[in-house]
Nucleic acid binder design. Structure first.
Lengths: 262, 262
DNA sequence: CCCAATTTGTTCGTATGTATC
DNA sequence: AGATACATACGAACAAATTGG
């Protein structure tokens, strides 16, 4: 009848006593996830309509819809109304993944220094693997970003904008690696830093000298990347990350004080 | 009337034209998130009951429940039935955060070598910061784990169990750092590797010599950690991570082929 | 431009389950 | 055991969005 396999609830015997009984929407959501895996569904593929799911699971519409919301929140499906509409498998977006992970850190007190402990080793590794690999287009993009803060900032807003722009410099680099894990890890940290910069007054005492030195590092980095000098790129980035050290002192327990929006 | 501030939907003017209209449950979920932040609610704190939310938002029960499911899926709230029950703020568990992030990588082809590119720099950084800081209890725990695979495996199942145990060795270390980001990053990678090891036949050709050398590294690492020799710990872990290199060749595009369960 | 069909979105009323007292 | 206060689930209806004729 239907071209697809059936979506079933797992036999009760299997889950027996492991923890508190799960709600029906949760069970349905898990069953649909299994279905997606079993059928090898890809982003864009349609999953059964609400009406079909109601029949398949013999559950009320509300229950089914709650299950779909669970998957929706995870970023795994998107729904559209109308003919040809329905619920479709969706690749979790980077933004969604970052927002969900940021929730995890909301109640932890993540410090700026914690982030830099990772940046200090990940970003040098990143640029080392990128040296000589960047298309000219990207090199130009990086140059443009550097140009956007060639002059020292005069106001606080300018200062903040320049700081966000300098984070974008790193973001462009992170987007270039083929390693999705490395790209995400660095991108996530940049999002957090950018969010903190925008929402709060981070880096209050403007240290012009420090700032100029940071830009100098980035220019030298750009040169090394262009020439394909992997070792130099790594060394420059390492030194660059080191300069952020003083920025972290006095910045105790600057944790997230809001949820990141997708 | 109520001790808490009101929960309001944001004025329509603010979100004006940014993208497709959001569903009501999504708007409600965001409003509740804002409420949690604004009120500074902590894990365990209660958010208004469904009945109250229905009144506050003037929406039907189903809509409110879908909103709560959205928060539920993100791991931010848990509901309990009965008197004194309700919906409560919940700190996102590490397991939940890992499962949600794993969804992101489900559709990407994450390679073993990608994971190791990060482990190679993060784990040495971890042990360097941990040297001399570990309580005796933890040192003993690490010893016990090493003891669990002092003899070479004879069967495939034993081989797999030993591999999972050796990942647990690293997990114990990751749990010791005060840096929640570093801890999560390494823990996440270990979960993925463990999952792959269990569900698939990873590391098929058993390389006994390589295995023995790996254990030797871990023992020397343990000694360095005990003595507080940060530089040695870093160097040993770096070398240890290097030995995994051959394991990755021929292991192309081993991506996740199922969703991680919490 | 309107109309009809399709599918998700939302409402309301009612009933059941569950934990507390 | 019974009353209470919650979440959980059901079912029928209607609303809104989208597509095609």
């Amino acid at each position: 009848m239907s071209p697809t396999e059936e979506i079933n609830l797992p036999p009760v015997s299997i889950r027996s006593n492991d923890g508190p009984k799960q709600s029906r929407p949760t069970q349905v959501a898990e069953a649909i996830k299994d279905f997606i895996v079993r059928e090898g569904l890809l982003p864009g593929d349609r999953i059964p309509s609400e009406a079909e799911l109601i029949e398949r699971f013999s559950m009320a519409k509300g229950t089914i819809r709650e299950a779909l919301r669970l998957l929706d929140a995870q970023g795994l499906v998107k729904s559209r109304t109308g003919p040809g509409g329905g619920t479709f498998v969706h690749a979790v977006s980077t933004e969604r993944a970052e927002a969900l992970l940021a929730n995890y850190f909301y109640f932890k007190d993540l410090k700026i220094s914690d982030i830099y402990q990772l940046r200090r080793v990940l970003e040098p590794e990143l640029v080392a693997s990128l040296a000589g690999q960047l298309p000219i287009r990207v090199l130009h993009e990086l140059e443009d970003i550097l140009d956007s803060y060639s002059e020292p900032a005069s106001t606080d807003e300018e200062e903040r904008d320049q700081h966000v722009a300098s984070l974008r410099f790193h973001k462009v680099l992170a987007d270039q690696t083929e390693n999705p894990l490395l790209s995400f890890a660095i991108g996530f940290m940049l999002t957090i830093l950018s969010d903190i910069t925008v929402s709060r007054r981070l880096y209050r005492p403007i240290n012009l000298d420090l700032w100029a030195r940071g830009r100098d590092y980035q220019m030298r980095l750009l040169a090394a990347l262009r020439e394909g000098d992997s070792k130099a790129a790594r060394a420059i980035m390492t030194a660059h990350m080191q300069t952020a050290q003083p920025l972290m002192e006095g910045q105790e327990a600057v944790s997230l004080k809001r949820f990141i929006r997708e």
